[in-house]
Write a protein that binds this DNA or RNA. Structure first.
Length: 432
DNA sequence: TCTGGGGTCCTAGGACCC
DNA sequence: TCTGGGGTCCTAGGACCC
């Protein structure tokens, strides 16, 4: 087996640049929801010293005069453009596994003979031509080494966006040049521990004895990384067929004290979870709600609450989940507390085809009604746009005549959002 | 004034079973 | 004096990823 990773360079920034080629060469940042933090930076923005996770208000303080192009996050656009890249990868690779919004693993079974370097360079050119996005490609005998290779592909133009590690010599040289903290699977904690043990590069770790690593790591995670760095393929491709949990949560623009206002949000989160479940043909057996105050406001009372309800009959019904979420919120709410964040999480998700019903409390008529309501909601929202139909308790304001109510997405602060020319006809004409 | 939102896996220890 | 042995399931907490 030989492995590869295809990674979009500065993904969100590159997506924004597809329709704004004038931004090539200029510093660009993309913000998180609510325009909170910097989540993506162009190389020029990185060169200015902007760190990932910088709060936007602090960026404005630090670099008030810098000519930075700022975007609110536009997941509709990023989802669409990355899906196009995945479809090109699917055509080019025998096996692929989408790892995140901007990364995709590929695998070549034993006996699959190809010139990997040429394969990678060709894929890069194809993505550049058909989607307009730059990707970096790393190819190696293990996934961890492929990740290291993709770092080199990104960093050094000489690789022409594709780096291949296929000999022991190349592997050892790459490991010696890779700081231990940059290795896939080494997080902040492990990195600190490694520094204490005088392990500074990937090669320092790879050269240790297996027993030493087993002793230091405490579990199999670090040991697997060690094997992978030494060229032994041992991280299996994601065998998981479906998500086990789904979460919808948001921070609010300000603090919320009122239970009705809080419930409006929570009901919307439950609605989104129900829709995500149905899209993935899943049902859930546990729904949880959490609420939290603003941890940065040390002057205010702090409170974090979580409660969960087990559902005897697993469901993906909007009404059932919204009702349960509303009831959970009533238990969690504290008068006089300013809430900054809330969320709904559904766990124990499973395919909807093997739905187990409650032996004693199963009402087929009610189930059929809930299902037909869900079908109607999905059908209308698909045809007329998401959130055309919402649950009454999830409405932010009454809908104006002929228009939509202010809702979950539009209630968020997004002062720098770009248009959606790939998914909305109305946005095409706004292109400059 | 202003600080994101999703996920996964592993392990230890307790509850419970026969 | 002295109290077994083997197994599964569940959960919380800790680590990681993007």
């Amino acid at each position: 087996m030989f492995h590869g990773i295809i990674d979009c360079d500065n993904c969100y920034v590159s997506c924004e640049r597809v329709f704004r080629p004038d931004l090539e060469g200029r510093p660009v940042v993309v913000l998180s929801n609510n325009d909170g933090c910097v989540v993506a930076r162009s190389n020029e923005a990185k060169a200015l010293g902007i760190k990932a996770g910088t709060p936007f208000f602090r960026l404005k303080e630090q670099l008030p005069h810098a000519d930075i192009a700022v975007f609110s996050s536009n997941y509709e656009l990023y989802g669409e453009l990355t899906a196009r890249i995945i479809s090109l990868i699917r055509q080019a690779a025998p096996l692929y596994w989408r790892y995140s919004i901007d990364e995709c693993f590929v695998s070549f079974p034993a006996g699959y003979e190809t010139d990997y370097k040429a394969w990678g360079e060709a894929l890069h050119r194809k993505v550049r031509k058909h989607v307009g996005m730059p990707v970096s490609i790393g190819l190696a005998p293990t996934k961890t080494l492929a990740k290291i290779a993709s770092r080199f592909a990104k960093k050094y133009p000489g690789y022409r966006h594709c780096c291949l590690i296929d000999t022991t010599d190349k592997r050892l040289r790459a490991l010696a040049l890779t700081p231990i903290a940059d290795v896939w699977g080494i997080g902040r904690r492990y990195a600190r521990r490694m520094a204490e043990l005088h392990i500074h590069t990937a090669l320092d770790l790879a050269s240790k004895h297996e027993e030493w690593v087993r002793h230091i790591g405490g579990n199999v995670c670090l040991l697997r990384t060690w094997h992978e760095l030494n060229g032994h393929d041992c991280i299996p491709p994601e065998a998981q067929l479906h998500k086990k949990s789904i979460c919808t949560s948001r921070s609010f623009d300000g603090l919320i004290y009122d239970i009705d206002a809080l419930r409006t949000h929570v009901v919307n989160f439950a609605m989104r979870c129900a829709e995500k479940l149905r899209q993935q043909h899943l049902v859930t057996a546990d729904i949880g709600v959490f609420v939290a105050t603003n941890p940065f406001r040390e002057d205010l009372e702090q409170y974090v609450g979580f409660d969960e309800q087990h559902l005897v009959c697993p469901t993906a019904s909007t009404i059932a989940l919204c009702t349960a979420a509303g009831a959970l919120l009533r238990k969690l709410y504290r008068p006089g507390v300013g809430f900054k964040r809330a969320g709904v999480i559904v766990r124990s998700c499973r395919p909807d085809e093997y739905l187990q019903t409650d032996l004693f409390d199963y009402d087929p008529t009610r189930e059929a009604r809930l299902k037909s309501i869900d079908r109607a909601i999905d059908c209308l929202n698909k045809r007329f746009g998401s959130e055309t139909v919402v649950i009454g308790a999830g409405q932010y304001t009454a809908a104006p005549r002929g228009g939509k109510a202010t809702n979950f997405e539009t209630a968020m602060r997004r002062e720098h959002k770009s248009p959606n020319p790939t998914t909305r006809w109305s946005d095409i004409i706004t292109l400059k």
